[in-house]
Design a protein around this nucleic acid. Sequence first.
DNA 1: ATTAAAAAATGATACATATCACATATTATG
DNA 2: CATAATATGTGATATGTATCATTTTTTAAT
Lengths: 225, 225
Amino acid sequence: MTSNINCNTCIIKSSAAKALNSEQLNALGKNCVQIDFKKGDVIFKEGTFSVNITYLREGIVKLHTEGKTSQILKIAKGPRYLGIPTTIEEKINHYSATALEDCHICFIHTNIFKSFIEENKKFAYEIIVELCNSELELFQKCVSRTKNNVYGRLSHALLFFSEKIYETDNFNLPLSREELGNFINTTRESVSRVLAELDSKKVIQIKGRQLKILKPEALKELSVI
Amino acid sequence: MTSNINCNTCIIKSSAAKALNSEQLNALGKNCVQIDFKKGDVIFKEGTFSVNITYLREGIVKLHTEGKTSQILKIAKGPRYLGIPTTIEEKINHYSATALEDCHICFIHTNIFKSFIEENKKFAYEIIVELCNSELELFQKCVSRTKNNVYGRLSHALLFFSEKIYETDNFNLPLSREELGNFINTTRESVSRVLAELDSKKVIQIKGRQLKILKPEALKELSVI
DNA sequence: ATTAAAAAATGATACATATCACATATTATG
DNA sequence: CATAATATGTGATATGTATCATTTTTTAAT
């Protein structure tokens, strides 16, 4: 579903978008289209031509590589920009984005996005801060993936969902066992086994995708970072 | 060694620094100090308080975590900014930087750096582009570390040194076997073994740190990314 | 040059985790 | 509701790589 939007009245703004003035928001509305995606929909695909900056207004997406050894690089929750690195200079997407929950996404013309950077100091600064945070997050993930064993990586991922995405210790996993494996770089079998063991040790309670974290401290102990 | 500098006459400028006008370069010179580091010197350390943006004018550095399971996150060659993510908003360095070759480094007051972002559109834009490239690089590395086995990761690293750092297929490795292990997430023993095997198969020729790549295509085949 | 210290090479073994095979749920479809 | 398709669980085995132990080489210090 596509719809015209009024960015002036939109209340779901990233800290960068909050820096835009009324005139800029009007211009944004005219150079931007909101599309609604359903769970599982592909938002953009690795290798395709990119002409927009993608703003995830609401929802949860995964950024991932393609192929049978697909790898989930990041899981992002709105409001935030997606894939600025992959779109701003080069025209080819370096990775794909797929909706894990229903999403409202705004596709913003790269040109108007660039003009805001030029016109609006605060906006430019906030984008820089966002990119910096994104890179630090990735560093963290890099370290977690390599310093932790499968137990640690899975614990880290479960805590990430609980703390950063759902903000509760009782939620439905947004990923299948196989996708979880792609996220923490292991196989679906290992994910099953470790989840079963954490369940048997009463650290978590899992049934299908329904997860309840019983002992977050125990998960924290398992992951060094 | 510390010295006052004239940024106007400096010919070693990043693409962002090239966007600064004469007045800004004068101001930069007054709010910036150049320090020369020798091979092995620590430039900044994880966990310490940070008050500057670090500009690597010339030389090669490693960005790494501390501790016995130290991990090398990135190897960078000047001219480029180092660790903007770790310094711009938060005041604590999230990782360390150590010189792998003699380096000339400019420490720039964070405030003047921020003022350039505000005053100079082109500068802000170039910083954004640099951060985007940096993140893409990290994505690449994340994928390489997890999709490749030790052979692939080491091949990838050797090609990286050859293509991105030294721009020749005949150079001295900037890292010990142990550091190479920290860079590609393996042990020094595994690095030794794989180097020995690549040598015996005449893909490379290695003696101590002296490396000559004989068959770059063979290395490319070993690493999927 | 001689000795000490550090780095690298190499063999033997251990172990975490991938792979394979198959059973059992769970979800989709006519 | 039945049947197929897909996802998940679990045991047995294989394998890449870490770990440990020891030797050899290189580098640094006196």
